[in-house]
């Protein structure tokens, strides 16, 4: 069975007819030519296919395209503002947070989604006090590691991935403090 769906992908409206079995990942890659999200395990275990789906980080391999008609999808490709990379992308480069790069688009999307969650006060498994008000400033390395655990990196760039995210957390918190002080 086929279905025609409309997606906004990285800011662009796309209409595509897909078999109902098509994952969002395959729709993006094979039908819309957006190879930014990667197919790692295709079983929801590695995180390489992570995109921002209606603003939240999701595994596009476990999403059926037909079920997301009308959705807004942002891939790592769409995070940049023209030639200006997203702060997370810049930090990944600065910190050498990758080797082969295959997991990187998923890592980057996951990190962006994760920072939004943390800024919104969401707790994690390693959050000691579930009832305390929390924000980005509370993201220590343990929190970053726990919250990024859905993204595997077989090259083992984890140490630098944590450092890259830590830097973005720091500059964001500093910028907020400066703005608040004005």
């Amino acid at each position: 069975m086929e279905a025609t769906i409309t997606l906004t992908v990285d800011g662009r409206a796309e209409t595509v007819t897909v078999d109902t079995r098509t994952s969002l990942l395959d729709a993006l890659r094979d039908r819309l030519g957006n190879t930014s999200p990667k197919k790692g395990c295709d079983h929801g275990q590695c995180g390489a296919c992570t995109v921002l789906l209606d603003g939240r980080r999701m595994l596009s391999c476990l999403a059926l395209a037909v079920a997301h008609d009308g959705a807004d999808v942002v891939t790592a490709r769409g995070l940049a503002d023209g030639d200006r990379l997203h702060a997370i992308q810049e930090a990944f480069i600065d910190h050498d947070a990758l080797q082969c790069g295959y997991c990187t688009p998923g890592q980057v999307c996951s990190a962006v989604g994760m920072l939004d969650e943390a800024a919104g006060g969401s707790p994690s498994h390693v959050t000691a006090d579930l009832t305390a008000e929390r924000g980005l400033g509370d993201l220590d390395d343990d929190e970053i590691r726990e919250r990024m655990s859905g993204n595997l990196c077989r090259c083992g760039a984890y140490v630098n991935i944590v450092a890259a995210i830590r830097e973005v957390v720091g500059t964001t918190v500093d910028a907020q403090a400066t703005t608040a002080a004005r």
Binding site: G44, G47, T50, R56, R57, M58, L59, L62, A63, S110, G113, M114, E117, P123, S124, H125, T127, L130, T131, R147, M148, S149, G150, N151
Partner: peptide
């Protein structure tokens, strides 16, 4: 119900919990 919040946060990954 902090026990329930803890259990939820111990399951799966951030991406999967969002879905």
């Amino acid at each position: 119900y902090p026990m329930l919040a803890q259990a939820l946060l111990a399951g799966a990954s951030g991406q999967i919990r969002n879905a």
